[in-house]
Computed example of a mutant assay.
Amino acid sequence: MNKKIILIIGGPGSGKTTLIDELTRQGYICYPEISREVTKQAQEKGITNLFLTEPLLFSQLLLEGRVKQHINAIKENTDIVFIDRGIPDVLAYMHYKGDSYPESFDLACKNHVYHQIFLLPPWETIYESDEQRYENFEEAQEIHKHLVETYRKYGYDLIEVPRDTVDNRVKFILERV
């Protein structure tokens, strides 16, 4: 089996979760974004925004979760696994905030490699805020720039997914896998 671990990345509100949900509906193995769960758990403990109050702890929790997703994806009994965001996302967000991080973050990016990266561009028409997404659209655009820079730093070619219907975006991805 020639397994492909494929990421769908992009700034907040670019449609990643919607695509992952559709791919799941079509029978593909997909791993969801874990930052919402980390944020929700912190909120349940009374921490309104862990990323802003303790960015290194938040990022460490994300890093651990994404490494675990990568390891689990390798073990899946299927040719393709889609993941909503990857390990380099953690570093991109740290760059966005201007925060430093331990060398272990960089090593995690080098030691856990993905096969293809599909990038969703910022799309104001579909952007929505909610309880776990605190960024406004302008901040989402800035995060997008950091994602592109970070993934390119690790040698990834990014395949930009056009703004289109969910069905057409999924078709675009599946034609290139």
Rank of each mutant, 00 (worst) to 15 (best):
K45L: 15
L23E: 06
L107V: 14
D164N: 12
N2F: 07
S104R: 12
T78E: 08
S35A: 14
K16Y: 08
T18Y: 13
R25K: 13
I29F: 14
N111L: 06
D157M: 09
S100I: 13
H115G: 10
I8D: 00
E139P: 06
L63I: 09
S14K: 01
I6R: 04
F58I: 06
C109F: 02
V177N: 09
G86R: 00
Y93T: 07
E142C: 02
Q132F: 02
E160W: 02
K40L: 13
H112W: 01
H144N: 11
K4C: 12
K45W: 10
S100A: 10
I83F: 07
K153G: 03
Q60A: 12
G155A: 01
E76P: 11
V113S: 06
V161D: 09
V81A: 08
G46S: 03
I9G: 05
P162C: 10
I9V: 15
H144E: 09
K97N: 10
G98C: 07
E128W: 14
R25W: 03
E103S: 14
E160A: 07
A42D: 07
E131F: 11
L107Y: 13
P102Q: 05
G15Y: 03
K16T: 06
A73R: 01
Y154K: 01
I20N: 07
G86Q: 03
L7Y: 13
